[in-house]
């Protein structure tokens, strides 16, 4: 007898997070072939050099270094604080923002340019109206 097996896969938290059928999740960038600028999310025109239709899709690195950060103590209601909001420059280009986890939220412990690694995991239990789970990315010390 036929049985419908719907394996519930999480959805990506942002459209530049890709979850392949097989293999590990990764972040996708669009790189301008003319000037090398890297963007998050699909686009056809480069806002740096204005070239059209020169974008190539690239896989962004899972490694980078901490450019800047803030330690957030007051956020919107229901959001756990404190947490570290981090700006990370990825190896090979591209800058992304996210939570830096597995580190004390202490300015003396967090070093500029420290190496970090991307990890992927459930979006802190957050679900959308339809009850779907989401996969997010985080940074942790490398």
């Amino acid at each position: 007898m036929w049985r419908n097996v719907t394996e519930s896969r999480p959805l990506p938290v942002v459209d530049y997070l890709k979850i392949p059928e097989k293999g590990e999740p990764y972040l996708e960038g669009y790189r301008c072939k003319k000037c090398g600028a890297i963007f998050l999310g699909e686009r056809n025109v480069c806002s740096k050099c204005f070239a059209r239709n020169e974008m190539e899709v690239i896989k962004l690195s899972d490694y980078g270094k901490l450019h800047s950060f803030a330690i957030v103590y007051r956020s919107f209601p229901g959001i756990d604080v404190p947490y570290v909001s981090a700006i990370v420059d990825l190896e090979g280009g591209g800058t992304i923002k996210g939570n830096l986890i597995n580190i004390d939220p202490d300015p003396d412990k967090i070093k500029f340019d420290m190496p970090v690694k991307l990890t992927y995991g459930d979006a802190l239990g957050r679900k959308d109206k339809e009850g779907n789970s989401y996969l997010s990315y985080f940074f942790e010390p490398a």
Binding site: V13, S75, F76, K97, L124
Partner: peptide
Amino acid sequence: GIPKEGLLGSGTMPCVFAEAGM
């Protein structure tokens, strides 16, 4: 989708300007 605040860093103004200051 789902709210991104506190998941992909913070978009609150005090945080955005803290990051710029840092």
